[in-house]
Simulated assay, not measured.
Amino acid sequence: MFVVENFRITTSLNIHGIALKYTSASLAAAASNCLPAITFFMACLMRFETVKLHTSSGIAKITGIVICLGGAATMAFFKGPELRLLLHHHLLSSHAQLNAAESSSSSSTWIKGVFLMLLSISCWGVWIVLQVHLTISFLLVKR
């Protein structure tokens, strides 16, 4: 129980706090909405869940995961550092200069923060999967 609790309480929250220094609160909100998708992915990796791609429920599971992670990735790119490829228009350039003056984070710290945020959510997902596994094991032993 102690090792499992360290995934959520200590590891996840400490990494989440560090990631907030490198990113923004809006990215943290978008990333935490990916918790069900990442938990499902962790359960599949640990072989507690299976996906049958030939059934409608399997296709729905994969579609939900792609939509959820795609939304968080869109939020990371939208709120993240400016992309120079899109700054060929004068209106976008002046807007991006105002945003660059407001935020002091560079693209390398933003990317580091995004990966730390995903690591934090992954630790949270591992905690959920292991907590369910421990609870089921405990209930089977009690019988």
Rank of each mutant, 00 (worst) to 15 (best):
F2Q: 03
F2E: 01
E5L: 03
R8M: 08
R8T: 00
I9C: 00
I9D: 01
T10P: 00
S12W: 00
N14D: 00
I15M: 06
I15R: 01
I15G: 01
I15P: 04
H16M: 11
I18C: 05
A19H: 03
L20T: 11
K21H: 12
K21W: 09
Y22H: 12
T23F: 10
A25F: 09
S26M: 11
S26P: 08
A28L: 14
A28E: 14
A29I: 15
A29K: 13
A29N: 09
A29R: 12
A29W: 10
N33S: 12
N33Y: 15
L35N: 05
I38A: 04
T39V: 10
T39W: 13
T39A: 15
F40G: 02
C44V: 07
M46E: 09
E49M: 05
T50P: 00
K52H: 06
L53R: 05
L53G: 03
H54Y: 04
S56I: 08
I59F: 02
I59A: 02
I59M: 03
K61I: 02
I62G: 00
I62H: 01
I62W: 05
T63M: 06
T63N: 01
T63Y: 02
G64C: 03
G64K: 05
C68T: 14
L69G: 14
L69T: 11
L69C: 13
L69V: 12
G70F: 11
G70V: 12
G71A: 13
A72C: 15
T74D: 06
M75W: 08
M75V: 10
M75T: 13
F77L: 14
F77I: 14
F78V: 14
G80T: 04
P81E: 15
P81H: 13
E82Y: 07
E82M: 13
R84M: 13
L85S: 15
L86V: 11
L86F: 14
H88C: 01
H89S: 03
H90K: 06
L92R: 03
S93Q: 04
S94W: 05
H95K: 07
H95Y: 05
A96L: 06
Q97W: 10
N99E: 10
N99R: 10
A100N: 10
S104Q: 11
S104I: 07
S105Q: 12
S106L: 09
S106V: 05
S108Q: 06
T109N: 11
T109W: 07
I111L: 14
G113Y: 07
V114G: 03
V114C: 10
F115V: 11
L116I: 03
L116D: 00
L118H: 04
L119R: 02
I121R: 12
S122P: 06
S122F: 13
W124A: 14
G125V: 15
V126F: 15
V126E: 15
V126W: 15
V126A: 14
W127V: 12
I128E: 12
V129E: 09
I136F: 09
I136Y: 10
S137W: 06
F138I: 02
K142E: 11
